[in-house]
Nucleic acid binder design. Structure first.
Length: 286
DNA sequence: GCTGTAACCTGTCGGC
DNA sequence: TGCCGACAGGTTACAG
């Protein structure tokens, strides 16, 4: 499911429910997601207070009052749903797209009777408990690249990251060791805004091209966050609200339709790169 | 070290 | 209607 804008939206939605609150019960319904849960996962969460919520790459981080960090990743199909026990089980906020209780793998209840459930049909997500002191050197985090919304991300930084790379630009943008948070949708949209072909060798993006691409990446991500992310199938915010940035896609999932760039008469094409669909305009992306 | 591919798992959709 | 294959927003192990 989620790329950076969706993860950021979910993190912001969970924050008022989780931050500063104590977990009074934790239920873990299966042994693993992408990876096995850590030992005694639910037991170790129970009684802990969540200090704050933050995002790194596509991970949601919840530092706890015992020096550990609850690390959460939603994979392709993960969703968090907020509920309220004080108004009864039936009043839980299970808004569309509906979640199948069969795939609800973790349920947390907080001291004010609010609940947070994690639902993930494909189980590509993960949850882990990591010492806060060693977070950046943990195997999940030590290879992560630059935050595209961070203060240091600009054309010069992007040019440096791509220099010498002989992989297609699309593949480089999806490589979380270089830049984090960009997935299939926003890679396609950013390349279209920058007028760069997904098949161009990444190492050829320098100077004004790199500056334009860095600007496009930042703009697409910021606009998507403002729109609450993009809802294609599974994604919804924690209150069930759908994102609406998908209505502003210029190329993604628009194969055969007209390019939306002004004065471009091109048609959006689809190609497969690394087993993933890429959407682009052959006319204005070079 | 770099690059491309397959695999993980389940649900949905289109074609026959 | 039912079956089958393709495909889906991510990440990683492995082969070349």
């Amino acid at each position: 499911m989620p790329e950076l804008p969706e993860v950021e939206t979910v993190m912001r939605g969970l924050s008022p429910v989780m931050a500063g609150r104590r977990i009074v019960s934790a239920v873990q319904r299966r042994a693993d997601l992408r990876f096995p849960f850590p030992e005694r996962f639910a037991e170790r969460l129970t009684g802990r207070r969540v200090e704050a919520l933050a995002r790194r790459a596509k991970y949601i981080l919840a530092p706890l009052d015992d020096g550990m960090v609850l690390v959460m990743h939603m994979g392709m199909s993960g969703r968090f749903v907020v509920g309220d026990l004080s108004v009864g089980e039936a009043a839980r906020v299970y808004a569309a797209p509906a979640v199948d209780p069969q795939h609800t793998h973790v349920e947390l209840a907080f001291e004010d009777r609010q609940t947070v459930s994690y639902n993930d049909p494909r189980r590509f997500g993960l949850m882990d408990l990591v010492p806060a002191a060693g977070l950046e050197t943990h195997k999940l985090f030590r290879h992560l690249g630059m935050e595209p919304l961070g203060p240091d991300f600009d054309g010069r930084a992007l040019e440096h990251l791509l220099a010498g790379r002989r992989t297609p630009l699309k593949a480089a943008l999806l490589d979380q060791r270089l830049i984090v948070g960009i997935g299939n949708i926003y890679a396609c949209e950013a390349m279209h805004r920058a007028g760069l072909s997904p098949q161009r060798l990444a190492g050829t993006v320098a100077g004004r091209r790199a500056a334009g691409l860095a600007t496009a990446i930042r703009a697409v991500l910021e606009e998507a966050i403002a729109a609450g992310g993009s809802t294609l199938r599974d994604y919804a915010a924690v209150n069930g609200e759908l994102g609406y940035f998908q209505h502003r896609f210029e190329v993604y999932d628009r194969e055969g339709e007209a390019c939306r760039r002004q004065r471009c008469a091109g048609v959006v094409a689809r190609l497969v790169q690394g087993g993933r669909s890429t959407f682009y305009c052959q006319r204005c992306q070079r």
